[in-house]
């Protein structure tokens, strides 16, 4: 499927409120071949990924912390997740950019540094 055509049908799959229209998706997917359907689904996933922002924290955030982050990233749907493996700090995933500010990453970096410097 040509990229222009794919872009058109993906745009047509969203309502005016910029939400995925289930009815439209059902209609469109009925006309697509298996390969085209795969590309269509991949394109929809990419757009959904861009709309969301994932915040992983080592503990449950307070309402004030949630508000602060939502204000920082207005225009995105902020999803909060708890990940104890981070030990301390936060990891923010914005589409394909990851902001790492956590103790686990620091310890990994120290381990790598020691491995490189010493026998």
């Amino acid at each position: 499927m040509k990229k222009k055509v794919l872009k058109k049908i993906v745009t047509a799959s969203y309502s005016k409120k910029n939400e995925l229209d289930k009815e439209q998706v059902d209609i469109i997917s009925g006309y697509l071949t298996r390969r085209e359907l795969r590309d269509y689904i991949r394109a929809l996933k990419q757009i959904e990924k861009k709309k969301h922002l994932f915040v992983d924290m080592s503990f449950s955030p307070t309402p004030e912390q949630e508000d602060l982050l939502r204000k920082q990233f207005s225009g995105k749907d902020v999803v909060f997740q708890v990940d104890p493996d981070l030990l301390l700090g936060v990891r923010i995933t914005d589409n394909d950019i990851v902001y790492d500010m956590n103790l686990q990453r620091t310890l990994d970096a120290i381990e790598e540094f020691i491995e490189q410097q010493y026998d």
Partner: peptide, 22 residues
């Protein structure tokens, strides 16, 4: 090792790294 850890942890809060993930 201990002094290295202390030095690294001192800068922990300002140690921001953005990575591109695909």
């Amino acid at each position: 090792i201990i002094s290295l850890l202390e030095h690294r942890l001192r800068d922990f809060s300002s140690d921001l790294k953005a990575q591109n993930v695909g």
